[in-house]
Simulated scan of single mutants.
Amino acid sequence: MKRIEFHNREREKKEIIDILNSEPSLITFVYGPINSGKTTLINYLIGQLPDVYVPFYVNLRGRFITGYEDFLNVLFEIDEGGAIDNVSDYAQSFLKDLKILSGIPIPLNLFEQIFEKKDKSKDMFRYIERFFSEMPKKRVPVLILDEMQVIGDLKIDGLLIYKLFNFFVRLTKELHLAHVFVITSDSLFIEQVYSEAILSGRSDYLLVDDFDYEQTMDFLDGYGWGEHEKESTWQGVGGKPVFLVKLINAKISGKKIEDVLSSMFIRRTGEITTRLKLVKELGDEMVIGSKHCDVHYEKLVATLKMFVDREKIGMNDVDEVSKRYLVKENILFVDPLTAMIAPQSRLDMLAIREVIRDV
Score class of each variant (00 low, 15 high):
I128M: 15
F111H: 06
F94E: 04
K122M: 02
K122D: 03
Q149A: 03
I114E: 00
L101N: 04
S93Q: 14
P141K: 06
D123W: 15
L145S: 07
M148P: 01
E129N: 08
K118H: 10
V140G: 01
F111L: 04
I100E: 15
I106C: 02
K118Y: 08
V142E: 09
Q113F: 09
M148G: 03
M148C: 02
K122F: 05
S133D: 14
L110I: 08
P107D: 14
F125T: 12
V150A: 01
M124L: 08
V142T: 00
V150K: 02
F115A: 02
E147K: 00
F132G: 09
Y127R: 12
S121I: 15
D119P: 02
Y90E: 10
P141C: 04
P107H: 13
F125R: 11
Q113S: 06
Y127P: 05
K99L: 00
Q92P: 06
F115D: 07
P136H: 08
E147I: 00
D146E: 13
F132P: 10
I100Q: 14
E112K: 15
K120H: 06
L101G: 03
I114A: 01
S102A: 00
E116L: 11
D119L: 08
M135R: 07
R130D: 14
P141Y: 02
E129R: 13
Y90M: 04
V150H: 02
F132Y: 14
K137S: 15
F111N: 04
A91K: 04
K96A: 02
S93P: 06
K120W: 01
F125C: 08
L143A: 12
R130F: 10
M124Y: 03
L143W: 11
R130I: 13
K96Y: 03
R139K: 14
E134I: 04
N109T: 08
P141V: 12
L145H: 04
S102C: 00
Q113E: 14
K96V: 01
N109H: 03
Y90D: 10
F111T: 01
K99D: 05
D97G: 09
I144H: 05
F132H: 11
K96C: 00
P136Y: 09
V150F: 02
L95Y: 09
K122N: 01
A91I: 00
R130N: 15
K117Q: 13
I144Q: 05
P107Y: 10
F125A: 11
P107T: 11
R130E: 15
G103V: 02
K120A: 08
Q92G: 02
P141I: 10
E112A: 07
L101Y: 06
S121G: 00
S93L: 10
F115L: 11
Y90Q: 07
R126T: 14
Q149K: 05
F115T: 01
V150Y: 05
L101E: 06
M124Q: 03
L145Q: 07
L101V: 15
E147A: 00
S93G: 09
F111Q: 03
L95R: 07
K120G: 02
D146N: 07
F115S: 06
S102H: 03
L110V: 03
L98D: 13
S133H: 09
Q92C: 01
G103N: 02
M135F: 03
V140R: 09
